[in-house]
Structure formats: structure tokens, C-alpha cells
Amino acid sequence: MIETVDTIEDRARTAGTDTAARQRWMAVLACAAPEDIALLWKTVVAPSAPAVDYLRPAETGMVMTRGRAGGTGDRFNLGEMTVTRCSVRLGDGSVGHAYVAGRSKRHAEMAAVLDALLQSPGSRARIQRGVIDPLAARQAARREEQRRKAAGTRVEFFTLVRGDD
């Protein structure tokens, strides 16, 4: 039987990885621009690129986004977004998954390989330091810049009492 992403027991294999930490790096990789990942990839990953087995080659599809009535009530379907996913296995057996917004296959492939490398004790620290931390810092800087711009447009309205006499 051909082993696919649906037949492997990923949950058991990654039981050793802290789920919260994995959620954090997967979020950073999903929210990063593919060009930014590619740039770090070139220096941090490419020199010792692992052998990659594609369990599920990158494919683009959609996820239906949802909101809540009134922001806090019942769920409703807002509209779809494009998402590209990919699953890989490295030589040491670690399995990486990626679901990233947009249609870039390269983005999903890099994110899946990095997810696998981040689960391998041998490469985790190097990838965290060399890829995730710089991407996270860039994202934090972008948020901070937006916060500063927003602060610049904060306004105090005063209610004026109109007297007719």
C-alpha cells in the first residue's frame, strides 16, 4: 500500500513536539511572504538541504472562512480564500505539513520542509534561529509600524453644546 498523507499516523509521530510551539512556527511561516522565506532558505537550508519525499505534492484549493453574527453569535460562511497545502517526509522520518494562504506552491513546499526540520531535534534550533525568528521579527515590525500609523490617526471628538439664545 502506498503511504500517503492520509495513512500515516502523524499525531503519534509528532507527539514529542509541543503543539503550541508548532502552531506558532506554522503561523509565522503561513503569514510570511514567500520571497522572504526563500531568501532565508538560501542561506540557512539550501547548504545542507535534506532529502524530501513528497507525501502530498503542493496543491492549491480553498478554505471557506467564517464569521459570527454580530461578531460573537452564530457562525456563518463569509467566503472562501485560496490556500496551498503540501506534506513532506524527510530522511530521518520527520513529517512536515503546510497550509498557506495564496497560490504559491513554492511557499507551501518550503513551509512543509521547514515544519519537518523544526520537529527534528537535530535541526530545530538552527531553523528556529535562522528562519522563524527573523520572519517573526519582520512580522512584529510590520504590526508595530501599523500600530504607530493608527496611533497617528487617533482622534478625540468633543461634543459641542449649541446655544440659541
Binding site: Q23, M26, G67, L78, R85, H97, A101
Partner: peptide, 21 residues
Amino acid sequence: VAVEYVPPELGFPIVVGEIEV
């Protein structure tokens, strides 16, 4: 806002990206 999705192969929510609304 961040969009979270639970891939069946993972079983926990992950952020797949941000959308403006």
C-alpha cells in the same frame, strides 16, 4: 484577522494566513 483551520491530519487549529476584513 488570522484565519485558523484544523487540518484533519493534524487535529489542531493552525493559522493559514491573514485576511483583511
